[in-house]
Design a protein around this nucleic acid. Structure first.
Length: 111
DNA sequence: ACCATGACGTTTC
DNA sequence: CGAAACGCCATGG
């Protein structure tokens, strides 16, 4: 690992800052970090987050559509959806409902 | 060094 | 309006 961890570390930091019952998108995080074109890297960082000693609430991070694309990475079950619903977020068919309502923009909130 | 893949996003047809 | 293709960046083989 190298300084690149700084990028991942930043991602994890922002994800951990997501308040309870709120969610954000990969693109927003990437943009907040100054790598708007690297939204995929954010998702990749999440994948690597499993290797971290500290757990990251990746279940609060979804794609632009609010779809739980990465739920399969949470154990192959509906764990991700369960976690979100547990926080009061309505999830139907791997898709977050009232996304605008639970959406949390780090740029807007952390600006 | 090149090709293939990915928890995305935007643009085009 | 819906689906497909392209683009971006980083990692792995």
């Amino acid at each position: 690992m190298k300084e690149s961890e700084n990028f991942f570390e930043k991602v994890y930091e922002v994800v951990r800052l997501i308040p309870y019952g709120k969610v954000t998108t990969y693109g927003c995080i990437a943009k907040y970090l100054g790598a708007a074109k690297s939204a995929r890297m954010v998702g990749w960082a999440m994948n690597n987050s499993h290797n971290l000693l500290k757990e990251v609430p990746a279940h609060r991070v979804v794609n632009r559509k609010g779809m739980l694309t990465g739920k399969h990475h949470f154990g192959g079950t509906n764990l991700m959806q369960q976690l979100l619903e547990n926080e009061g977020i309505i999830v139907i068919e791997n898709q977050i409902q009232e996304l605008e309502k639970v959406f949390w923009d780090p740029i807007k909130e952390l600006s």
